[in-house]
Structures are given as structure tokens and as C-alpha cells.
């Protein structure tokens, strides 16, 4: 499992990185932490002519917390998210989800941009980005653009990123302090790929749930929102009855795949269970 041959460049500006990508469009790949890309190279599932290492590119490794929300530079590593105490209140859902990514030595190198670009259907961050209406800022040969998470993840390992574009930043909308939320995931062991995971939040208006967001990853070919369950919960008090109904809806409507880890039927049932548990936990505050 030796890597295929490729050229290597470590440009020192974003501009340079983007123009290198453009010049080798289709055959160059960007690398940051490499925690998803190197296994792909080892199995020779990708064979780029050029790897563009972003390690010298400045300004992509900041975590900013403002009234607008949380921004993660594309080179922010999982360990940076974990150790940033601000995020525990500024975006507790994100902070919690990141602890489920791989193992600690993976989290010491793996990055936000890498995870989004890799778009593994079982990965946590794409699921969180979709759940939270996050936006992905990208730089390219033409002009910078922002892609909504719901438009970004197209399928397994497939995104809306053009071959000459680089992820610059992931932007989460502001997180109200009183927001209710929960994160649930089932993997066969710590660090293994999730068979399914679920993130949710809602705000309370007059004791009823509002702005309900439910996102699921691992169950289908890409992260997905469980919109019918969201709609059923909006405006309702989250009680046992509401939870049970939402769980049934989630099981019935989630897009689930059969693979070596589990059947689609199992995943459908699991998503219902995860939703029930997440709602119960969130309701407890």
C-alpha cells in the first residue's frame, strides 16, 4: 500500500494555491491534515498528479466567535475545536460532535476543510454543517463564493466544490444561549464509522419547540435533514407523545442504505431511536 507517485507543492499564499489548482484542474488535490486523503492514496483510490499542501497558507486556521456566529477556518483541526473553551457555549453541538471524530491522534491533524471536502456520508462535521444551516466559503479561480451546506454535499465523497476551488471557511449562524440541542451517534466502537448519527436543536417559544433542525449522517448516501419530523415538532411541546410521533416519522422518511455495516431497515429503526433519545435529552435541557 505504497502511495502512487505525485508531485508536491507547498505554496505560501491562498492565491498561489488556487492558481496551482486551476492550472492542474482535475488532476491536483489539496491536502491539509491528510487524515482522509492519505488512506485514499494508500488504497490507490485516487491518483493525483499534484498534491497542493496548504500548510504554509496563512489565515486559514482561525476560529472566530462573534455575534454573527462561529467561523472555522478550513485548516482548523479537530483538536483546536476541542480545546477552544468558547465553543462549548458558542456552539455546544459542534463541540460535542467533534469528540466523536476518529481517535485523538487523528483529531490532532484532521481538519475542517478536509472533512467537508472528503464528504464521507458517515462523517460528523458534514452532518453538523447541514443540520445547522452552515455556509461553506470557497476560493476559486473566478471569484469567491459561499455554498450552503444543503447544496454542498451531493453524494458519497461528492461535493459541489469545483476542481479548482478550495474551502476557506465554514460559517455557523449564531447560537442562542437558551437553545435546546442533542447529539447521538451509534458506531460499533469508539472511532469507527457511524452506522448512523443524529444532531438536533430547537428554540423554545412559549414552552413549544420552534426552529426545529434535525440532521442525520451515516444512514444514507449523504447527510440529510429529517424535514417531516422537524415540521411535526415545530410549535409543539416536546413531550413523550410528540417524541414518539417524531421518531416514527424519522424512521419512515429517512433515506437509508444497505451496506456491510447494517441493513437499511436497521438504520431506519436506529434513526428513530436516536431521535427519541436526542429529543428526550434535549427536552431535559
Amino acid at each position: 500500500m505504497k502511495l502512487p507517485s505525485f508531485d508536491y507543492a507547498a505554496p505560501s499564499t491562498l492565491q498561489e494555491a488556487v492558481s496551482l489548482l486551476g492550472a492542474h484542474a482535475g488532476s491536483a488535490l489539496a491536502i491539509a491534515g491528510g487524515q482522509s486523503l492519505l488512506p485514499m492514496l494508500a488504497y490507490r483510490l485516487v491518483a493525483p498528479s499534484l498534491l497542493i499542501d496548504l500548510r504554509r497558507v496563512p489565515g486559514l486556521d482561525a476560529i472566530s466567535v462573534t455575534d454573527e456566529g462561529v467561523c472555522l477556518g478550513s485548516k482548523v483541526r479537530w483538536c483546536d475545536v476541542e480545546s477552544d473553551a468558547r465553543l462549548r457555549t458558542a456552539h455546544p453541538l459542534l463541540a460535542q460532535a467533534v469528540t466523536h471524530v476518529g481517535h485523538s491522534s487523528i483529531r490532532n491533524r484532521g481538519t475542517v476543510g478536509g472533512s467537508l471536502a472528503h464528504a464521507d456520508p458517515a462523517a460528523e462535521l458534514p452532518g453538523i454543517a447541514l443540520t445547522c444551516d452552515a455556509q461553506i466559503a470557497v476560493a476559486g479561480a473566478l471569484c469567491p463564493r459561499t455554498i450552503r451546506a444543503e447544496d454542498f454535499f451531493l453524494g458519497p465523497m461528492t461535493t459541489a466544490l469545483a476542481s479548482d476551488e478550495l474551502i476557506v471557511e465554514l460559517r455557523f449562524p449564531a447560537w442562542p444561549a437558551a437553545r435546546r440541542w442533542a447529539f447521538e451517534e451509534l458506531a460499533r466502537q469508539r472511532g469507527a464509522f457511524a452506522i448512523a448519527g443524529l444532531a438536533l436543536y430547537y428554540d423554545l417559544r412559549d414552552a413549544a419547540a420552534a426552529n426545529v433542525h434535525i440532521g442525520v449522517f451515516g444512514a444514507g448516501p449523504r447527510p440529510q435533514r429529517i424535514t417531516q419530523a422537524e415540521a411535526a415538532l415545530n410549535g409543539r411541546v416536546i413531550d413523550e407523545q410528540a417524541i414518539a410521533a417524531a421518531a416514527r416519522t424519522a424512521s419512515a422518511t429517512v433515506e437509508a442504505i444497505d451496506d456491510v455495516n447494517a441493513s437499511a431497515a436497521y438504520r431506519r429503526s436506529l434513526v428513530g431511536t436516536l431521535l427519541e433519545r436526542a429529543l428526550t435529552r434535549a427536552a431535559q435541557g
Binding site: Y43, R188, Q189, R190, G191, A192, F193, V260, N261
Partner: peptide, 28 residues
């Protein structure tokens, strides 16, 4: 509880990596 070498009907091994063939870890 964990380990299984799974084949499809064409005789392809579907678990030829340590990401898909799970060994017990310290946490299990």
C-alpha cells in the same frame, strides 16, 4: 461481537481494511 469477513455473492471481500474489519480496542 465484532469481527467478520464479509463476502458478496461474487466472492469479493467487503472488509479488507481495518476500518471495515473491526478489532477489539482498549475501550471495548
Amino acid at each position: 461481537l465484532l469481527e467478520e469477513l464479509i463476502y458478496d455473492e461474487h466472492g469479493q471481500l467487503l472488509t479488507a481494511s481495518l476500518a471495515s474489519y473491526l478489532l477489539p480496542s482498549m475501550d471495548d
